[in-house]
Design a protein around this nucleic acid. Sequence first.
DNA 1: AAGGCAAACTCCTCTAGTCGAGTAGGTGTG
DNA 2: CACACCTACTCGACTAGAGGAGTTTGCCTT
Lengths: 261, 261
Amino acid sequence: MAELPLPELDPLSDRAVFRQIADHVREAIERGALHEGDKIPSEAQLMQHYGVARMTIRNALQVLQSEGLTVAEHGRGVFVRSRPPVRRLASDRFARRHRERGKAAFIVETEEAGGKPSVDSIKVSEAAAPSDVAERLELAGGEHVIVRSRRYLINGQPVETAVSYLPSSIAQGTQIEQPDSGPGGIYARLEELGFRLDRFVEEIRSRMPFREEVRALKLAPGVPVFHLIRTAYAADGRPVEVCDTVMSSDAYVLSYELPAR
Amino acid sequence: MAELPLPELDPLSDRAVFRQIADHVREAIERGALHEGDKIPSEAQLMQHYGVARMTIRNALQVLQSEGLTVAEHGRGVFVRSRPPVRRLASDRFARRHRERGKAAFIVETEEAGGKPSVDSIKVSEAAAPSDVAERLELAGGEHVIVRSRRYLINGQPVETAVSYLPSSIAQGTQIEQPDSGPGGIYARLEELGFRLDRFVEEIRSRMPFREEVRALKLAPGVPVFHLIRTAYAADGRPVEVCDTVMSSDAYVLSYELPAR
DNA sequence: AAGGCAAACTCCTCTAGTCGAGTAGGTGTG
DNA sequence: CACACCTACTCGACTAGAGGAGTTTGCCTT
């Protein structure tokens, strides 16, 4: 507490006390008086400093937490949140020249950035296509799809979950149905099957994560997710895959190139 | 209350009471028992139903609010949040054929979707380039830029703020310095000045809004924003504009096309 | 020196109230 | 009939406690 001089409350302000306290701590973080990982004063210390009830302090801390500025650790304290290394997704990441190197894009990129990539929770099944997937794959009602779901991690930290849907008429009986889809991933397999990939369309949304997503991605409170739906089209214009991925928003910067023509 | 049957608490569960209550209400919303704009039971009603203290109910409601599922209105009640109409940004939105129609992309798109577009808070100034902008514009240190900031609204609802930066060496003395940048917007002006636009690069981040952004975009609590930085390149490869925009994430779906070649 | 244990400290959940301020609806007066 | 006012109901802010559970630290035993 001695090390962190916080202002006093302004009794004339009509700004709520808990907001004033949140403002003070936020400013301390923003001006660099508190760094990533630093512990902020405990609830008891803040109570004493401001002379208010504990719930008021907790309300203030709650504000910061929902802004994603801090994380509370039970029994340890409240800390300034540190951000994971950011992964930049370039718009050429699915270029064939990358795919032909025989490794999936995720592995290559992560290793190049000096991280240890891994993939877990791989599950493959077959089911009727959900309606939004059926629509994107231009499937008739009730047609089945192969569903591949998995989770991507960097240095053991989960950063992304992905679920791919491929028409059973294409993928059934191929290596795509195996947990290990082989070198270059499912896009390489699709090309081997004669579906020369032409283009991808990605739709991006941003929202707060659901509870399962918070768990699967070990998200800090107040961190939104990117929800990205990619549809892969073969050279004849036929959609051959839909990939539904959820990414921790503070682990990613997405980058795209648009033509002006 | 009578109309909305909520389950009882599970006394054996080790899930916190306020989380169980939040779960109940969330499920009611998700299964459609409560629709957009519906009022959820008041704090007093929920207290009675569950037999818990008011703070516990408030904690539960806080969870839903921070998930963006509900909004509280002082003196009226807590309501299921209704989402504004979504604007889809297609990857060809800056194609020259659109620009040549003489209207800015935003106006055309919004009118086509049956909305009333408007732009306000237009401010133009000149200043030293911030370092990240200078980097993207490949400017030498200290070089000046023309700064154009504005806010976009649909049916009077703010959906996006944008700040454009153009090198003073290009834009000074042109209509770009006027609040009304003329038909087709600044991209049309740049082409008239001989900078044939070639491509754009967009970087997309997602995060929780700052306080000023909550105000400017009238954001509901718990709604993240897209932070998009677009750099426009002329045919000779020279960057000619950086546009920094913040968009309400529930008013937008971004869409991009990627080549597979 | 190593290991076990207890105390101190941390945040988490919850109770039971107070006062305040915004909203909506009904009632009574002009 | 129109308007002002009152009242009941809503959420917002805050107080002042309780017991619980996870973490750290240092002391004491072995």
